[in-house]
Simulated scan of single mutants.
Amino acid sequence: MSSGLGVDDGIRTMLLLMPRLVGRIKRLQVPPEIAGLQLAPRHLSLFAYLQFDGPLGVNDLAARLEVTPATVSLMVGELTRKGILDRQADPEDRRKAIVTIAEDQRPAVDAWLSQSAKAWRAALEPLTPAQRQLFVETFSRYEREISES
């Protein structure tokens, strides 16, 4: 039975793996219905929150995406003009906007997201909940560390 990887072996493996992973992610096929809309990987995160968490306010999206509400407002405005998102007044507070994926665009957005979701499911499903948590925490820490350097 293997006792696992040493830190240096793990670093070497990840340094070789990450560029391949990023390259493959960049080549994910955008469905033809939305291919000409100049969508970027940053839009995937916004779509994922709306798909998994349902309609959200701009401030909620900003907090989850870890950007300013102004940044989210610009993204939402752009995607609303392109017909991918719908923005409606919050029935409880008319000053706030609630953002959703436009119904007619939902199948295309779902198809785009499902490519990554399917791969993540295959990678994470065999793990125990504790192993999944450790993996997600490790990946999150890597993202924080790389963004600080």
Rank of each mutant, 00 (worst) to 15 (best):
residue 86 D to I: 06
residue 5 L to A: 10
residue 90 D to C: 07
residue 132 R to G: 08
residue 23 G to Q: 06
residue 66 E to N: 07
residue 7 V to C: 03
residue 83 G to C: 03
residue 23 G to I: 03
residue 39 L to T: 04
residue 144 R to V: 15
residue 101 I to L: 06
residue 120 W to C: 11
residue 69 P to A: 00
residue 78 E to C: 04
residue 23 G to E: 06
residue 104 D to R: 15
residue 61 L to M: 12
residue 134 L to A: 15
residue 30 V to Y: 06
residue 115 Q to Y: 01
residue 5 L to C: 09
residue 13 T to P: 04
residue 7 V to H: 05
residue 78 E to A: 03
residue 10 G to R: 08
residue 35 A to K: 15
residue 24 R to M: 11
residue 109 V to K: 11
residue 35 A to W: 05
residue 68 T to Q: 06
residue 57 G to V: 04
residue 88 Q to C: 08
residue 51 Q to S: 09
residue 21 L to P: 07
residue 105 Q to N: 05
residue 18 M to T: 15
residue 148 E to N: 08
residue 39 L to S: 08
residue 128 T to N: 06
residue 145 E to D: 10
residue 59 N to L: 04
residue 81 R to W: 04
residue 106 R to W: 02
residue 60 D to V: 05
residue 144 R to K: 14
residue 123 A to P: 14
residue 43 H to I: 13
residue 8 D to S: 12
residue 49 Y to C: 10
residue 91 P to T: 04
residue 84 I to C: 06
residue 6 G to M: 04
residue 14 M to Y: 13
residue 75 M to Q: 08
residue 8 D to Y: 04
residue 109 V to E: 13
residue 57 G to L: 03
residue 16 L to Q: 15
residue 62 A to C: 08
residue 16 L to V: 00
residue 58 V to M: 07
residue 45 S to K: 08
residue 78 E to K: 10
residue 47 F to H: 12
residue 84 I to K: 02
residue 145 E to M: 07
residue 15 L to V: 04
residue 115 Q to R: 14
residue 2 S to G: 03
residue 47 F to G: 15
residue 109 V to D: 14
residue 15 L to H: 11
residue 141 R to E: 05
residue 64 R to D: 01
residue 77 G to V: 01
residue 64 R to E: 01
residue 7 V to R: 12
residue 138 T to N: 07
residue 27 R to H: 04
residue 116 S to T: 15
residue 9 D to C: 14
residue 85 L to Y: 01
residue 105 Q to D: 05
residue 100 T to L: 05
residue 132 R to K: 12
residue 37 L to V: 09
residue 137 E to I: 09
residue 108 A to C: 07
residue 40 A to H: 04
residue 31 P to H: 06
residue 120 W to N: 13
residue 11 I to T: 15
residue 25 I to Q: 08
residue 129 P to D: 09
residue 106 R to S: 12
residue 122 A to D: 09
residue 67 V to M: 02
residue 17 L to N: 15
residue 98 I to S: 10
residue 87 R to H: 02
residue 10 G to C: 11
residue 103 E to I: 15
residue 106 R to T: 13
residue 42 R to G: 10
residue 75 M to R: 05
residue 99 V to A: 00
residue 72 V to T: 07
residue 110 D to V: 09
residue 145 E to T: 01
residue 75 M to W: 05
residue 120 W to Q: 14
residue 118 K to M: 01
residue 115 Q to A: 01
residue 130 A to Q: 09
